[in-house]
């Protein structure tokens, strides 16, 4: 009887601990993720232009590194760096880059924006 009770208490504790862990689990650490998806912003746009479905299978929600020359920097609530064919919403607002700089940005690919015909990158951080 005691043994059963003991096992039951343990089981409840394990379930509770798992629940608490799940509830408080940390957000994704994009910058800490390894990625092999490293490519120029315009080739990423080209892949999306050719076949959005297969591009989504490969890139959507993945950590990616896009390379390109800064076309412009837009900002109000979030700083957005425009590379050829890709718009990157940046994690921090103050950036030491300007138009014409060649940069690498690591972030999550969130898909293709038909309005501007460009790929969207979120939570971007300049690397190197």
């Amino acid at each position: 009887m005691k043994k059963i009770l003991f096992a039951l208490v343990i089981a409840v504790l394990v379930v509770a601990a798992y629940g608490i862990y799940q509830w408080n689990k940390p957000h994704r650490d994009v910058q800490g993720e390894e990625t092999k998806l490293i490519l120029s912003s315009d080739s990423l746009q080209m892949l999306y232009g050719q076949n959005p479905d297969s591009a989504n299978k490969m890139f959507l929600d993945q950590a990616v590194v896009v390379k390109g020359e800064v076309q412009s920097i837009e900002g109000d609530s979030t700083t957005t760096v425009l590379l050829p064919g890709a718009a990157c919403s940046m994690e921090v607002d103050k950036l030491s880059v300007k138009k014409g700089d060649k940069v690498k940005i690591k972030g999550i690919c969130t898909g293709y924006d038909d309005l501007f015909q460009e790929v969207r990158i979120d939570r971007g951080v300049l690397i190197q």
């Binding site: 959507l60 929600d61 919403s89 969130t110 898909g111 924006d113 038909d114 979120d122």
Partner: peptide, 9 residues
């Protein structure tokens, strides 16, 4: 007018 938002964002 047109709007688009990535769900993953």
């Amino acid at each position: 007018a047109e709007f688009s938002v990535p769900m993953k964002s």
